[in-house]
Design a protein around this nucleic acid. Structure first.
Lengths: 195, 195
DNA sequence: CTCCAATCGCAACTAAGGTAGCTTTAGTGT
DNA sequence: ACACTAAAGCTACCTTAGTTGCGATTGGAG
């Protein structure tokens, strides 16, 4: 997405420093407390440079998001679709609850709501994640637990949606039970042939 | 939420003017383009006054949200739970697609992500709306279409969650079919006794 | 009707966000 | 090694967000 004509040296170092600084700042102060100045100072990169390459705080978050998208993601394997699906949803839920990861992940969602650039990055991120997670559904189909007609990615989406809805839209607390229920609901729908 | 010691007269007029101006600005420029200065100028109220009483743009949105929460909300009545539930979800979806209502509603969600005050207001808003919408589920139970054990509000939440997820988290387009599928999925889960 | 406190308007100010023009540094190709 | 140039650094500046202190209005109680 970003065109770098000199990938070799300083530019790459600067980018790396800024990305790290962005993630660190997000972890400490959240998206609300993220400023270009702070990132510039923390990274040791001049603020004009940050403005030139990233433009806004949303740009910083969008770039950091690409970095985060590369991280590996564990896929549960409990032997049953229900167990796996619950695992996937619980992984999402607990991720946002984590004192270190939570603020960063929340920042991604918040930034995407204000900047089309961040929105694109986040969409790509979820597409990749859900493609991976859909594996648990496909395994369920192979085991004969689900009809072959199911849309695996749609099952994942419907399973995690209530968690995101509660966290970022309705701003209700999300318990582990809530997560399990959401997973079970998606599963029931899939079994019924709706998804 | 706001304590007004002089409810009659100027204070009330000022508040009303500011609320209207906020909604109008949101409709035209969205949440990103909302500034205290613009609202002040549009409403004819001095910017100092706006800062004193509302503090931030998020405060403005939170207050406008309380106004919007009073608006009546149609509840579908098609004769079947499926039809009603689909109607409820479609109402949500089309509301955000509406060129006039959409930006305002989206602004509420965006503001709530940045300000605890707006988050509280939005939460209360959804609680009220979903309480009303849950009526379609309760009717379904009375007709014997659903087990008596269902949590009516939870069915609504699970039904609408995918729409919100797509719109505000994954930033995917949401078709009418998507809305119907979400409603059907929640229904299947409810029938299976999961919700 | 009169007084008092709440609230608003006003102007001047501070701080922060963001930009512009120029200089300097350091990858990269010859 | 050398020259070329993309990209970073730096200073100075501009604009916008938000604050402060004070005087002017205005509801509302007696």
């Amino acid at each position: 997405m970003e065109v770098i004509k000199r990938p070799g040296g300083r530019s790459a170092r600067v980018r790396d420093a800024v990305r790290r600084a962005t993630l660190a700042e997000l972890g400490e102060h959240g998206f609300r407390g993220l400023t270009v100045d702070n990132v510039a100072e923390r990274s040791g990169v001049h603020k004009t440079t940050v403005y030139r390459r990233w433009g806004t705080v949303e740009g910083l978050v969008a770039d950091a998001l690409e970095l985060a998208a590369g991280e590996p993601w564990p896929i549960p394997d409990t032997g049953t679709v229900q167990g796996d699906l619950r695992g996937v949803v619980e992984l999402v839920r607990s991720g946002f609850e984590d004192p270190e990861l939570g603020p960063v992940s929340s920042a991604f969602v918040a930034a995407a709501m204000q900047s089309p650039e961040a929105a694109r990055a986040l969409r790509a991120f979820f597409e990749a994640r859900h493609d991976q997670s859909a594996q648990v559904v496909r395994r369920g189909v192979e085991r004969g637990e689900l009809p072959v007609t199911v849309d695996a990615r749609e099952v994942i989406r419907v399973a995690v949606a209530p968690v995101y809805y509660r966290l970022f839209v309705a701003h209700e607390p999300v318990s582990r039970d809530d997560a399990d229920r959401a997973a079970d609901a998606a599963l029931a729908a899939a079994r019924a042939g709706v998804l």
